[in-house]
Amino acid sequence: MNRLLSVNGLRVSVGEAEILRGLDLEVNAGEVHAIMGPNGSGKSTLAHVLAGRDGYDVTAGSVTYRGEDLLELAPEERAWRGLFLGFQYPVEIPGVNNVALLKAALNARKKYQGEPEVDSIEFLKRVREKAGLMEMDDSFLQRAVNEGFSGGEKKRNEIFQMALLEPELAILDETDSGLDIDALKIVANGVNRMRNDQRAFILVTHYQRLLDYIQPDFVHVLARGQVVKTGDKGLALDLEAQGYDWVLDKAANQ
């Protein structure tokens, strides 16, 4: 079993408020984990802390990624090691060309891996191929990063970037929110196509809808900063049918 990520007893605060209160999570290569939970349960905080965003104080616990202490690494160092965050709200960067960013990102990772940079022709070939899969046309690629993109276009762009960067661990933070059903299918196909035994996914989501298209191996319910229940795909369906309250009540009664 190839362990990618171990989160042990993670406690995280933002200012005065403690958001994660002793969270545990194990992710192996080849697995797809769905993290569900009501608003404010700490789902996005987990995603941001794993990617290294500033503004979060880790007060206790550890995060190990492929044997290394993840929390010691700068955001870009995590990216070089194959960790990808699909943003809930992808950022607009005026004037910075989408493809130029990707090329710089891909080559930064190649450099870390000691591999030669991809040449322009090869790079463009890959870009076209992945963009085609995401049903993105060329004009889309030549625009500035996320600038003037619709909500759905931004999310598709995130998956496109993921496809090109080929991470080992992809964390998709509410990638399904704001998508119509067609866009949702495109995004889900993008993810499914990338599933293999070397790669793992963490899908952070509020709704079960995405899981109709991406079959998770595990479903975790996050509440008040902890994983309160873990199950298989069936758990997501139960949550869909009955809401979160019964899980929370049960957890509270334990």
Partner: peptide, 26 residues
């Protein structure tokens, strides 16, 4: 948020700043 986004994609802070500034001036 722009800096973090670029760094999440693997750019160093300095490269991210240069890229954002050049974009600003494009």
């Amino acid at each position: 948020d722009q800096l973090f986004y670029c760094r999440q994609r693997g750019l160093s802070e300095e490269d991210a700043v240069n890229m954002i500034v050049n974009g600003f001036c494009k």
